[in-house]
């Protein structure tokens, strides 16, 4: 019995000591991750999570972080489930989320009571472009925006407007479609699809007429002659598609859209943790691997912005989305 008591005392002491370890560690000066850093992808596996997994592989390859990065997919609710998960990690610097434009569109269009403003903006890592793509098997003679507009008007007059596929509802694809309709005064029929793959399948198979999409996703079909790019919704021409004009060139200076690839941290995080993650991401972005990766998936990574500057840009970006969603009658 006596031994048992001794063991208890020792055990208590050990537990107490273990509890004190993190306290002592925290008194050390600069912030460093003390557990694996979780990269939250608010979408399904495949597609959008490549960028998160690539950051993970670069950090691992160059040993940029004393703790490993762990990528988890928290899909659902057009990105809102993942965002809520991040917001619930309040104050914990061991998390960041890699999000697309859904961080802006979903709070605008649904009645969830949180938005990207509840997160800590970390970095605008890259921007993706959008282009108008048409099924060239179905419309072998349509090469220019003028021809497309003429075709669209003819089809609406017949009562069967051109069918535009796009991923999801009230998200970037529909917004860009509205942008095109408003700029050129045409009427299109938007058909929401479940994923980029769904859109590709229906466009190549000729079940829909056209779509607005990231040009990288359609490179294979453009090379094989199944799909033709008509115009890019961007200020500059898209590398790899130098022959494709941009909307501003054709006289529509405001009809541009860039899709976000942004990093966010949970709310109320220690500024030193934000600083640490910013430095980490900067190191990743400076590697040649990152530049090659962006070039391959045709993302524009020329101007990464961080922290407060990114937050300011997000406000403008949010206002732009709200404007088009209102014009299209998708929100009040």
């Amino acid at each position: 019995m006596k031994h048992l008591k001794q063991i208890r005392v020792i055990a208590f002491g050990l537990v107490l000591a273990l509890c004190l370890v993190p306290l002592m560690a925290q008194s050390a000066q600069a912030w460093e991750p003390k557990k694996p850093v979780t990269v939250v992808i608010p979408y399904a596996r495949g597609g959008a999570d490549v960028i998160g997994r690539f950051i993970q592989s670069v950090v691992g390859k160059y040993d940029l972080c004393p703790q490993p990065l762990v990528v988890i997919n928290k899909e659902g609710g057009s990105g809102s489930v993942g965002m809520k998960y991040l917001i619930d990690r309040k104050g914990d610097g061991h998390y960041f989320m890699v999000s697309l434009s859904s961080a802006i569109t979903t709070p605008l269009t649904t009645n969830i009571n949180f938005s990207w403003r509840d997160c800590t903006p970390l970095c605008r890592a890259a921007l993706d472009r959008h282009a108008l793509c048409i099924s060239s098997k179905k419309y072998p003679d349509v090469y220019s925006l003028d021809q497309f507009v003429k075709l669209a008007k003819e089809m609406s007059a017949k009562g069967t407007p051109l069918q535009m596929g796009g991923t999801g509802s009230k998200q970037e694809d529909e917004i860009v479609t509205i942008m095109l309709e408003k700029a050129t005064g045409i009427d299109l029929r938007y058909i929401p699809m479940t994923s980029g793959g769904d859109v590709a399948k229906n466009l190549v198979g000729g079940h829909i007429d056209a779509t607005v999409n990231n040009p990288s996703e359609f490179l294979g079909y453009v090379l094989s002659g199944d799909v033709r790019l008509i115009v890019a919704f961007d200020k500059q021409r898209v590398p790899g598609y130098i022959n494709v004009p941009t909307m501003p060139e054709l006289g529509y200076p405001d009809a541009t859209y860039q899709m976000l690839r942004g990093l966010f941290m949970p709310p109320d995080v220690d500024p030193e943790a934000v600083q640490y993650m910013t430095e980490l991401i900067k190191k990743v972005i400076e590697t040649q691997d990152w530049k090659d990766f962006l070039a391959r998936i045709m993302l524009d990574g020329s101007e990464p912005i961080y922290g407060a500057e990114f937050g300011k840009w997000l406000e403008e970006y949010d206002a732009m989305h709200a404007k088009y969603l209102k014009e299209g009658g998708l929100i009040q």
Binding site: G46, G47, V50, I297
Partner: peptide, 18 residues
């Protein structure tokens, strides 16, 4: 066709780009 017809194919297509 390069069409991700299954969740696996979606992951592999992402890998192919890299």
């Amino acid at each position: 066709l390069g069409i991700p017809g299954s969740p696996l194919a979606a992951i592999v297509l992402g890998g192919m780009l890299i």
